[in-house]
């Protein structure tokens, strides 16, 4: 499979669950490799906790809608598939939105808008289109789990990077005696953190002899 923005559709025999997980977390990491769904990656990652909560929300929506689409893939007419996918995602997003508002009100006050906007994340609908619409329930579950975990880990990585440098703490616990670079907690710092982390992953991939990541352009 290529690491470029347009991933070929997966048909034929499904890969093993382990391959799917590794694919989602490393080979096709939604944020660092596919450059999809960047908005939340910059917006909510001022702290690890915010990134974690939004990551969990995306993971849940991805797994649940992948499974829903995999179950109904024989019924959905190909011509109306995109609106149907959108409605399926919107239903699960509403459910997760209400759940978070009830159980984590403090964090929800900060990331609430972005939780609602999960409905427009390109990564979810592209996985439904590429994978879940052609594969049975169990592989779709693992594909959703891998992609969701990849997104979650990316958000937590960026969150940890920014919280440590900007606030001198991790998960709210102060580990450094000062705030080394307050800049990274500011809006502009979010862009720079992504730039640095993405360049690092590019460098890593280049050192291993792989291809560079997608250059962006996918919307959502």
């Amino acid at each position: 499979m290529s690491a470029h923005g347009t991933t070929p559709a997966v048909s034929g025999p499904p890969p093993s669950p382990w391959q799917l997980l590794v694919n989602g977390i490393l080979t096709e990491n939604p944020v660092f490799r596919l450059a999809l769904s960047l908005c939340p990656a910059v917006a909510v990652t001022t702290t690890v906790l915010n990134g974690l909560i939004l990551g969990v929300a995306v993971l849940a929506v991805q797994v649940l809608s992948s499974m829903t689409v995999a179950i109904f893939r024989g019924v959905i007419h190909p011509r109306v598939r995109i609106p149907v996918y959108t409605i399926i995602i919107a239903v699960w997003v509403s459910a997760i939105d209400m759940t978070l508002a009830a159980f984590a009100p403090a964090v929800y006050a900060q990331v609430g808008l972005y939780v609602k906007l999960i409905v427009a994340f390109a990564i979810i609908i592209s996985r439904l289109e590429v994978f879940a619409s052609r594969q049975p329930l169990v592989p779709s579950f693992f594909d959703g789990l891998g992609m969701g975990l990849g997104f979650l880990l990316a958000l937590v990585t960026i969150g940890a990077f920014r919280e440590l440098l900007g606030n001198g703490s991790v998960l709210g616990y102060h580990v450094l005696p000062s705030q080394p670079l307050l800049f990274f907690a500011l809006p502009a710092g979010g862009f720079f953190s992504i730039a640095l982390l993405m360049a690092f992953f590019n460098w890593l991939e280049r050192a291993r002899g792989g291809k560079p990541a997608a250059s962006g352009g996918s919307h959502g």
């Binding site: 979010g190 720079f192 360049a199 590019n202 560079p212 962006g216």
Partner: peptide, 15 residues
């Protein structure tokens, strides 16, 4: 720089 070509440098610019 090679590692920064494409998106990373665009992000730094946006920053």
């Amino acid at each position: 720089p090679k590692a920064f070509t494409g998106l990373p440098i665009a992000f730094a610019l946006a920053g």
